[in-house]
Design a protein around this nucleic acid. Sequence first.
DNA 1: GAGTTCTGTGTAAACGTTTACGTAAATAAA
DNA 2: TTTATTTACGTAAACGTTTACACAGAACTC
Lengths: 337, 337
Amino acid sequence: MQSVNLKRLAEELHLSIATVSRALQDSHEVSPATKERVRALATALDYQPNAYASSLRRNQSKTIGVVIPKVTNHFFALAINGIEEAARQAGFHVLIYLTHEEYEREVSIIQHLKGGRVDGILMSVASGTENTEHLRSLRIPVVFFDRICPDISTANVTTNDYESGYQATAHLIEAGCRTIAHLLLSSSLSIGRNRQQGYLDALVAHGLTPSPGLTLPGTPANDGPAGQVGRIRELLQRRPDIDGIFASVERLAVSAYHVCRELGRRIPEDVKIVGFSNLESVSLFDPPLTTITQPAYDIGREAAKILLRAVEKKRPILPTQSVVLASELVQRRSTMP
Amino acid sequence: MQSVNLKRLAEELHLSIATVSRALQDSHEVSPATKERVRALATALDYQPNAYASSLRRNQSKTIGVVIPKVTNHFFALAINGIEEAARQAGFHVLIYLTHEEYEREVSIIQHLKGGRVDGILMSVASGTENTEHLRSLRIPVVFFDRICPDISTANVTTNDYESGYQATAHLIEAGCRTIAHLLLSSSLSIGRNRQQGYLDALVAHGLTPSPGLTLPGTPANDGPAGQVGRIRELLQRRPDIDGIFASVERLAVSAYHVCRELGRRIPEDVKIVGFSNLESVSLFDPPLTTITQPAYDIGREAAKILLRAVEKKRPILPTQSVVLASELVQRRSTMP
DNA sequence: GAGTTCTGTGTAAACGTTTACGTAAATAAA
DNA sequence: TTTATTTACGTAAACGTTTACACAGAACTC
């Protein structure tokens, strides 16, 4: 198909394939003059090495796989941005796989990746994932970011979720809230548990008593925006005394806004809202949304760097290489006293 | 490395490698009994075929490359979603490359892809791209979506940009605007030219005279949000009579909101705004933004389908396979009379 | 029963690289 | 001069698949 290969170059230059290959890799076993001849013809014929032959022989593909729940969440879009940047700098390619928060898809994707198509994996586990068997039998290096898998001994890149949960809740309390709801995506994710613990500790530290009914745990099988809106509406109707909402994920904050409008609850007069979000346009919201903003780009880039270093040095990834980055609380009108 | 391969299976089953290979492909040349034995051992040992050996031999990688300007634009995130879905259904993998709107990166990426790493390419050209030489020498099938390359004879998946430009402008006029600005990303993209023509024709059809000074053409080298804000501010200060803004891209609509706030122009009382956007949260904006919403998911999926069909049948892609999908104008408060 | 087709399997050659090993000539060391 | 080392290249064997071809034996045809 693609007719210009090492053989073709070798024939035209009256050299062996081996010499041509070595010349293109700038091997010291080739004379400068020959190298020059080879390079000249290679560029003249627009030679590009066959990635698959090379990968097969070297047993490494210069490719990493990114397995994430969705790309329409701005957090993940920014993370991909950081990943792609780190990969490009290291000469690596990026394969992308979306789980859509579904356990089955995640298993199927990981199964495919076992074939050695990628040298390493960056992953944020699906909200529907509870069993981690598919990840434990994985022989390929993996780094988790944001949504980690505690069962696997590897490096994780996360944010200070406990502190963020504490900070967000304390912020609401200081703004005058007394009955604060916590909306989360899935209670099976460690990330959610950490935020929940921060939320609980902040309540207690400020002399408020946590109520189980105020935490909306999310369904294991993510039921999408419609289901989320329904569950939030039900919660706000059941507990009309709620005066503060802490949303653990962007979508839930948006859904909460919609429900508040529908039920005629004014933000921030009746209900104050703070939510995790990476949307730049929250400042244009009515009212502007107070956010916990994660350094999504840096998370992606750091995770990729750790993975790429390990792949390049062929060293295992140690849990001690884990990185925790700080999120930032950006105060806006939705939590004004 | 990955020790379980065809050889291993063949040895354990006392068969030849060829038979094992054929059995796994469900070839009619293998007896049902043997097939069953092979399949049983393959699953027992968790065998996964080596993708690179297979790709090398078959000369096709079951992989497509997606080359886009950025993934943080919600339009592209949704498009990737559609692409990934179509690819997954066809058993294809998706490599992702970001140009960051830069011509040099685009050239470098395309150069890499010439090595046969992918069977096909889906692409939306960078705003910085004016020379198309790198695309013309490409031997791999490519389908453009949204931002096409008119020089290349292939299928394109676009939206009705001219009509959208006309419709958006007419909508502003009907809402009472008389001096309408058009903000676009890059005047070198065909997509921008089409929208601009729709804008101009709508003005004339409604008895208004277009003024060149009202079109903000964008810089070839995309100067990012800060530069955009500066140019929009300069325009609104130079022309205080502007009472309508048509933004050809999401970011510009957001920037326009910020500038209007900064300059104290009320939306929609002083200035009405309509913008291309795929953000779900525009309905939470203050005021909610009237949008032209492109069917981004469908665009990605359609483009991928066309490409994948061509790759699978090994047929060339014809311009006649192009698809034009309709965008939708969603009226919200930012253009209320 | 001789010839023909079909069935199931094995042999071996590809695909395009990389690389261990071999080797002639050139240079250095003795 | 002889021997050791270096330099610059070639030979050939991998990497794990797929597949054209060969070939037994079984099942048909006449």
